[in-house]
Design a protein around this nucleic acid. Structure first.
Lengths: 158, 158
DNA sequence: TTATGTGCAAATTCTTTGCAGCGTG
DNA sequence: CACGCTGCAAAGAATTTGCACATAA
């Protein structure tokens, strides 16, 4: 939420360009287009969803480029890759505040939450083990309120 | 650690047999052999490691059977499947107490820890969202003390 | 100009499945 | 003796890669 409301320079662009250049890489149209589409998506899209969204606007961009660009975004630190119960990766823009996830194993819904107590406990644990923490991920699995009401059952596993 | 020290009846056997029977399934030699080898392994083996360990002793057991038996163990609740940074699943015997993981992104080492504060915070958060929690997983990523000392660098991502 | 990036399709990797025969209950 | 389980190999799903052409710097 920073300033003008339409067609402003997106906040990901400068750090991305800087990162690419710092690597001796090239700022290309496909990279910027994939990034633009990705950052416009909601939620926690998998590659498939990103590819479809990209190809809706630029049909000639191949899926390999989407994969490669998502890796680039992850390396740049602007995006995080996660794997929830599914066997594919999902991607998520990195915001300023760290958040974790509630994963509904019944309907697949993913909600975010933030908890300072957990963040602090993590630092404490990492310290206790002489660990230099670079990140963490935590998921609470179960059934969301709606599925509980409907008595849907979880799919399997923990 | 329960009692006599050699060739005692392993603790996984009865619950596994009960589970299989409760499902109308059959207690077969391959299933018991895969289970025996699996529960004899240390750490957080992937399927590949389990297959190799199994085939060292029973070369005629196929990998499909290992996959199928691991799923059976997960369904029975005796084993949990996890995915860390890698793109394959790792399996871990379920103990009485819940523990979480410190994952070293430099050398791949995985350490376990347990923290009542985190367990409790999770319950509190699940409650706050009307979530019926069935489980959770949490990983702290970073560099372990040894890698920090050696100044090894993490591989990528979060 | 020249190395890096792209698009396509084929290759890899991990996992699941079809099927004929085997063995438990 | 019926139905579930096994082993094999082939199929599938997600992701990576080789290569010839395109293009940023």
């Amino acid at each position: 939420m920073s300033g003008r409301s339409r067609k402003e320079v997106p906040s990901w662009r400068e750090p991305l360009v800087d990162y690419i250049r710092s690597r001796g890489g090239r700022v290309t149209a496909p990279r910027l287009r994939v990034a633009e589409v990705f950052f416009g998506l909601q939620g926690h899209p998998g590659v498939e969803e990103v590819v479809q969204a990209v190809q809706r606007r630029w049909p000639q961009i191949g899926q390999a480029t989407v994969y490669r660009t998502l890796h680039l975004l992850v390396d740049s630190g602007l995006v995080e890759a996660r794997q929830f119960g599914d066997r594919f990766s999902r991607y998520e823009a990195v915001g300023s505040e760290h958040h974790d996830h509630l994963v509904c194993d019944c309907c697949g819904a993913i909600r975010e939450f933030e908890d300072p107590g957990i963040e602090e406990a993590q630092r404490r644990i990492a310290d206790a083990f002489g660990f230099r923490m670079t990140g963490h991920r935590m998921e609470i699995h179960g059934c969301c309120a709606r599925c509980v009401a409907r008595q849907t059952r979880p799919r399997s596993g923990a």
